[in-house]
């Protein structure tokens, strides 16, 4: 009885408080890092942590609601976490000249090609399966 009385407010806090939920995301990440180190897998801790969370969601051990607010906030502000990494350019002054321009052009053209090919492949396959499904439904 006593234990239940403590657990209920803790549960409520997890459902409502964004900061607590972000802490939970951090815990999954830390667990992923520890697992990566223990097993020697060449995977980032965040990805192992994500897999752990997904398995728990699917197995019913953890409700999505206890992570949703924190996750939404993290995903919305994710671009901020990339900002400091861009300053690594400061250490590569050789990229500020002609070579940098070439690489810039390469990245633009290549990325455009990758995006067009990926999107068109998926979309054409999508239209094909849709038509296929429709025909099967009629037959």
């Amino acid at each position: 009885m006593m234990q239940r009385n403590i657990l209920i407010p803790a549960h409520r806090l997890l459902r409502r408080n964004r900061l607590v939920q972000i802490g939970l995301l951090g815990a999954f990440w830390a667990a992923g890092e520890a697992l990566a180190r223990a097993t020697g897998l060449p995977l980032p801790g965040g990805i192992i942590g994500m897999a752990l969370a997904l398995v728990l969601f699917l197995a019913g051990g953890l409700k999505v609601a206890s992570m949703k607010r924190g996750a939404n906030w993290m995903l919305a502000e994710m671009l901020l976490f990339f900002v400091p990494a861009v300053l690594a350019l400061l250490d590569h002054r050789e990229l500020f000249g002609m070579l940098g321009l070439k690489i810039f052009a390469l990245i633009i053209v290549s990325t455009t090609a990758v995006m067009c090919v990926t999107a068109l492949t998926v979309d054409l396959c999508y239209r094909w399966t849709e038509r296929h499904d429709a025909r099967r439904a009629v037959a």
């Binding site: 951090g26 990440w29 992570m67």
Partner: peptide, 12 residues
């Protein structure tokens, strides 16, 4: 914080 942010993708 990109680590915990990656975990956050489990939700969507």
């Amino acid at each position: 914080l990109l680590g915990p942010a990656t975990v956050a993708f489990a939700v969507p």
